[in-house]
Design a protein around this nucleic acid. Structure first.
Length: 300
DNA sequence: AGCTCTTCCTGAAAGC
DNA sequence: TGCTTTCAGGAAGAGC
């Protein structure tokens, strides 16, 4: 499933081919994951791609209106865009440039025809992804609804975001409004590295634990990006190549196997509605051992 | 504020 | 063998 490292990998791939290209036309299949399907055909054709960026788990394709008289060979870049095509890959989304004669993968629901004859294709088996247009002036608000990027957040800001929060740390890591870009795999991996149990309340973390977690997140994400992300459940980069970070997973998907650090058996529990993998010895549970306590016989 | 539950969707895997 | 059920999960919304 695409999380920050996978999205970053896709963005880097697209950045090499998309800027400078113009969108000629748009063809759509199923559209239930698109905010305003009609708007795509209305506003994209004729615009030129000037940049590709990552905002949390969103891919931002920045588009500019091509001025009248400006040849299609005119230098790209510099002008600032007036429209952004935002793509969230959800669980199974893929975004890649393909030649028209290449076979179309099943569940491909979006074709953005480019002026060089190629197609930017959006494929999404489960359609948990999302596509929407955000005008340039709406971008600040769009961004403000997401937290700091998990890869760039400073130690100070990170700890400020956790301070006083009564939510479980796992829930906060997954909450995009708190920290953008984290997903289930990297949350579990980071917590294991930092030796923090996923069900701990953020407010109860000691200062050094918060610092350790911040470090762990950076390390895990950086290494994952370097390896092209994790390819489980068929993630492929923009060129169709798998990443290899799944080989480095220390707890995710390892329930019942031995902890790489201490040898205890890795467990899986549900925290914040998500399956959470952890080592019961390295990541001690918070005091009330998460058992469901019987309601006390009323009285006082 | 934050928890649980539900919804969306499909394919893989488990169950019978 | 083959059909049925369960599960996985990002994000949003409801209800408590």
């Amino acid at each position: 499933m695409p999380e920050l490292p996978e999205v970053e990998t896709v963005v880097r791939g697209l950045r090499g081919v998309l800027p400078g290209r113009s969108i000629v036309s748009v063809r759509l299949g199923k559209t239930d994951f698109i905010d305003d399907p009609a708007a795509l055909g209305e506003h994209l054709p004729g615009r030129r791609i000037i940049a590709v960026e990552r905002i949390g788990k969103f891919i931002r394709v920045e588009l500019a209106t091509v001025e009248k008289g400006e040849a299609r060979s005119a230098p790209a870049e510099k002008t600032s865009g007036d429209l952004n095509l935002m793509v969230h890959l959800g669980m199974t989304g893929r975004l890649a440039v393909r030649a028209p004669n290449e076979p179309v993968a099943p569940h491909t629901h979006g074709f953005f025809d480019l002026d060089d004859g190629n197609e930017l294709r959006y494929t999404d088996i489960r359609r948990f992804g999302r596509i929407l247009l955000v005008p340039a002036e709406g971008l600040p608000e769009f961004q403000s609804r997401l937290g700091e990027d998990a890869l760039f957040v400073s130690a100070r800001e990170f700890s400020r975001r956790l301070a006083g929060r009564r939510a479980r740390i796992k829930a906060l890591l997954l909450d995009q409004k708190s920290l953008r870009g984290m997903g289930n795999i990297y949350a579990d991996e980071s917590l294991w590295r930092a030796r923090i149990h996923p069900a701990r309340l953020a407010a109860n973390l000691k200062e050094e634990e918060v610092a350790r977690l911040h470090q762990a997140i950076r390390q895990v994400l950086r290494t994952a990006i370097k390896l092209g992300g994790s390819s489980i459940s068929d993630f492929l980069d923009a060129e169709g190549k798998p990443g290899s970070y799944q080989m480095r997973h220390r707890v995710y998907g390892r329930e019942g196997e031995k902890c790489f650090r201490c040898g205890a058996i890795v467990r899986r529990i549900i925290v914040a509605g998500r399956s959470s993998h952890f080592c019961p010895r390295c990541q001690p549970a918070p005091r009330p051992p998460r058992k469901r306590r019987r309601l006390r016989k009323s009285g006082k």
